[in-house]
Nucleic acid binder design. Structure first.
Lengths: 342, 342
DNA sequence: TGTTATATTGTGAACGTTCACATTGTGAAC
DNA sequence: GTTCACAATGTGAACGTTCACAATATAACA
């Protein structure tokens, strides 16, 4: 800083309170063995001088920064449109704050270098540990972190070799439940709107597996012609649905692998003059906040996004503190929610 | 960290290269006066040992952390639904990365303490400067930062007493252009969907002023019964529009003060069996990415959100480095974009 | 060849905190 | 009264880097 606001240090406080600086340190860190009277005097001095301990200086001897990094290997523009991801971030933020940690954001800068976001974090040794959001690009980054023995937890299905860990919802079971519901309602031809055919995350694979499993249980076989692809956005869901409706024998129900595409599907269905759910039932996935507000309110599979973020963060703290994670994979429940679109 | 991965320090590099540690420091910081041959030797040693300078240690003598804070005094759940804000963040992130800074996120934790997000940043002396997103709550936080002589820049209309600065778009002129367009098309009764009546940000005031100004230029007076309130979300725009349509003499055009509410308005209009823009024209504000994809594509006022974020970040760096900002208020152009909804 | 200026390198201290250990004080037990 | 154990506090060093300055090597000049 140019204007060198001079800092209030632990020594200033010590002088003010008439004790040694080490005693002040003990008070700050809630160490035992400080006479209550002394503690009070120090606390008072801290208050009077408006002292704030310096994180960087503190981290030096402790080899810690009290910062965790959040790597999101998307470009920021794109990623911030995903409500599910944003819910995760909110969970992460809450948990980090509760533990006195700060959250550093590292996104892909669009430099073309897939590992840039990871590199930047490593380059500065700035974080005690890293949370990685799984994307098609994140696996190489995780490998890099592992090689440097950097504590990290992955949000998604990425490789969770100890001591790292992966946290995700039970996508397979959620998709299975959703499909079973449609089957129970008598639907036999169910259209699937999947994520992009290339560069997809594993979660989509899992959802598809759950879907096929349910079909199999009902003695049906999966018909690949009923599966189309989107890119998670609403318009892509709309387009995908138009494809499905154009089939010679179109589906009577559509299961979109996220809510935004499901909303796009409903638009397309209406634009074609059909009704939801009467003519065609629609189910989404994620249960983003907008799902309940939609008209009709969306039947969907709730992923505990926020909780996943918080859980991953907690596990990361465990790893940082040397406690091994409960498992290399933590699976959170996915809950099927029946509203009005199916 | 529990597993004390021993760090490679500047001294290890020095030993490896057969020079003093200060020389290594000089190489890292691109200081002059290092013989090319020596520099090469050091660089090679850095490479060989995979050395990464430690940010915290570096910041100690320099009184800098190379981290900037981004305070968003909303709860994370809420804020992350705002595409305009997210575009700003993306601009901030890009600019910070380009300058070798890291971005720390500080949101409201829902503790009820309005200043929590600010306090946390100050408490740890963790950031060199702060970017503040203007909200109804942010003004007190800015005052706090100013009192502590902390460098900050506000994204919005918040008080920009030197050396701090406020960056925002020309909301007034944008709204004026939009209204003029409607007037030119012959509309005489224009409904306004404003932000919430309490706790609104100043940008909304400005938009309203621009609107009234255009009316006045056309010799019309502003009719308060045509103004209703939303909370920036799409459903709220829908509800607000229902109110407008229920008026004895409903408007022939609607100007919503953000795109999401404009989208809600279009839904409501259609649900009422009317057509956009034939029966009722709709204009939004922001030009969020979804606006162009909407059907019909939304006529709106583009705010250079991403650029605003980048500009604010640049100015913050200037302040941190002791250069005064160009002004206490930087106004970016707002561009009226005609698509199909009006 | 000696002198001086300059380019290059090295040395000690500092940044603000914590850690390991040394010192002092206090009361209990002998 | 001595001794001892333990509580409370103080001291020196360390964390990894940069800064200011001192020291040396090199080149340039007379």
């Amino acid at each position: 800083m140019a204007t060198t606001r001079k800092r209030v240090t632990i020594k200033d406080v010590a002088a003010e309170a008439g004790v040694s600086y080490q005693t002040v340190s003990r008070v700050i860190n809630h160490h035992a063995s400080v006479r209550p009277e002394t503690r009070a005097r120090v606390l008072e001095a801290i208050e009077r001088l408006n002292f704030r301990p310096n994180l960087a200086a503190r981290g030096l001897p402790q080899q810690r920064t009290f910062i965790i990094g959040l790597v999101i290997p998307y470009e920021a523009d794109y990623l911030f449109r995903d409500p599910h991801l944003l819910a995760q971030i909110s969970g992460i933020d809450a948990e980090a704050n509760a533990r006195g940690y700060n959250l550093l954001l590292s996104t892909e800068g669009g430099s073309g270098d897939d590992l840039e976001a990871f590199e930047r974090l490593l380059r500065n040794q700035v974080a005690d540990g890293v949370l990685v959001v799984e994307t098609a690009r994140s696996h190489a980054g995780c490998a890099l972190l592992a090689r440097e023995q950097y504590p990290f937890v992955s949000l998604g299905y990425a490789p969770g070799a100890p001591p790292s860990c992966a946290v995700h919802a039970n996508d397979r079971e959620g998709a299975r439940q959703a499909t079973l519901h449609l089957l129970k309602k008598g639907h036999r031809r169910i259209g699937i709107i999947n994520g992009p055919p290339t560069g997809a995350v594993q979660a989509m694979e899992e959802r598809l597996t759950g879907h096929r499993q349910a079909l199999q249980e009902a003695g049906l076989t999966f018909d690949p012609t009923l599966m189309v692809y989107g890119d998670y956005t609403r318009p892509s869901g709309q387009r995908a649905t138009e494809q499905l409706l154009a089939l010679p024998d179109p589906p009577t129900a559509i299961f979109a692998f996220n809510d935004r595409m499901a909303m796009g599907a409903i638009w397309a269905i209406r634009a074609a003059g059909r009704r939801v759910p009467d003519d065609i039932a629609v189910i989404g996935f994620d249960d983003i906040p907008a799902a309940a507000d939609f008209s009709p309110p969306l039947t969907t599979v709730r992923q505990p996004s926020k909780e996943a973020g918080a859980t991953a963060t907690r596990i990361l703290f465990d790893i940082i503190e040397g406690n091994p994670p409960p498992a290399t994979e933590v699976v959170l429940p996915a809950e099927f929610i029946i509203r009005e679109s199916a």
